[in-house]
């Protein structure tokens, strides 16, 4: 009897957790396909009787495809560069006994707790002087500042897990260090790369402050900036902004679902080390 009660309570709690996690996603989607007549009701309607995709077709005719492409360029560039930089650095930190290792660790840690506001002003002047304002290169560079630290730590802990014997064998067989990294460590560090990639991609895709400051020409605007501006000028067009939000959310959710298994492993191993 008590076990039945316990299971019932547990089920209820799980239901509450699932609903509160997913409801905003559901509501965003539902709002985006409701015709206005079903949208503005005092009692919310949870089921759409006559869904419309009109808002989507309207948005796709506008600037959204360009903004989507811009965001994708920056996020993919950030992800690839972060993976490369962090894997090499993580490898060096895991395998070599550098005397400066502890200082390096502290420096990397500090980069992770810096407020973005302490970077935003000098980077603006730097990019302005270097002609990097309103360029994908500039924004990508600024996003690297947010991603490389944590990803280096993630990959370092993954490389530590890879038995050194495997590389040793390759090195004894006369392979160069680079070759050993490329053909042995790289494939085995794959789960770590997946975890750090999803972190880098999501960070870059979602980033607003740098994007709003450094991308001011409509043609190269990224999605978060465009959406924020659209929302602040037409915030009563709820259906429209929801449809745009859905388009904005889909890629990260898909990317997240593809690599979630790896991500969980990454987070679990991070949690063990505390």
């Amino acid at each position: 009897m008590t076990s039945l009660l316990r299971r019932g309570a547990l089920f209820l709690l799980v239901a509450v957790i699932v609903v509160s996690s997913l409801f905003p996603f559901f509501w965003m989607l539902v709002t985006s396909v409701k015709p206005d007549s079903e949208l503005f009701t005092r009692t919310p309607r949870f089921i759409v009787t006559s869904p419309t995709v009109e808002r989507y077709t309207h948005l796709l005719d506008g600037n959204i495809p360009t903004q989507f492409r811009n965001s994708l360029i920056v996020a993919v560039a950030t992800t690839v560069l972060t993976g490369l930089i962090a894997l090499l650095a993580g490898y060096a930190l895991a395998r070599y006994r550098l005397r400066t290792r502890h200082i390096l660790t502290v420096v990397i840690l500090v980069t992770q707790l810096l407020p973005q506001t302490i970077l935003v002003i000098p980077l603006f002047t730097l990019f302005r002087n270097a002609g990097l304002l309103n360029t994908f290169q500039g924004l990508t560079l600024s996003h690297l500042a947010l991603t490389v630290g944590l990803c280096t730590f993630m990959l370092r802990s993954f490389v530590v897990e890879i038995p050194f014997e495997l590389e040793e064998a390759a090195l004894v067989d006369g392979a160069s260090r680079l070759r050993a990294v490329w053909s042995i460590v790289f494939p085995l560090a794959w789960p770590g790369l997946a975890a750090s990639s999803v972190y880098a991609f999501i960070t870059s895709w979602n980033e607003l402050m740098f994007s709003a400051t450094y991308m001011q020409r409509p043609a190269i605007e990224t999605l978060p900036v465009a959406l924020q501006q659209y929302f602040s000028s037409y915030y009563t067009d709820w259906g429209g902004v929801m449809a745009a939000s859905v388009i904005f959310t889909i890629p990260v959710v898909i990317f997240f679902l593809i690599v979630q298994k790896r991500l969980m492993q990454g987070m679990a191993s991070g949690a063990m080390k505390g």
């Binding site: 905003p24 895709w205 607003l208 939000s245 959310t249 969980m264």
Partner: peptide, 27 residues
């Protein structure tokens, strides 16, 4: 845990908009 982690993936701008809509005074 996949379901629980999902909100982390929603862009903050999008989640701000959705919550503002959910906190709308009339609807």
């Amino acid at each position: 845990s996949v379901i629980v982690l999902l909100p982390w993936a929603m862009p903050r701008v999008a989640s701000g908009i959705v919550w503002k809509w959910m906190f709308d005074d009339q609807y």
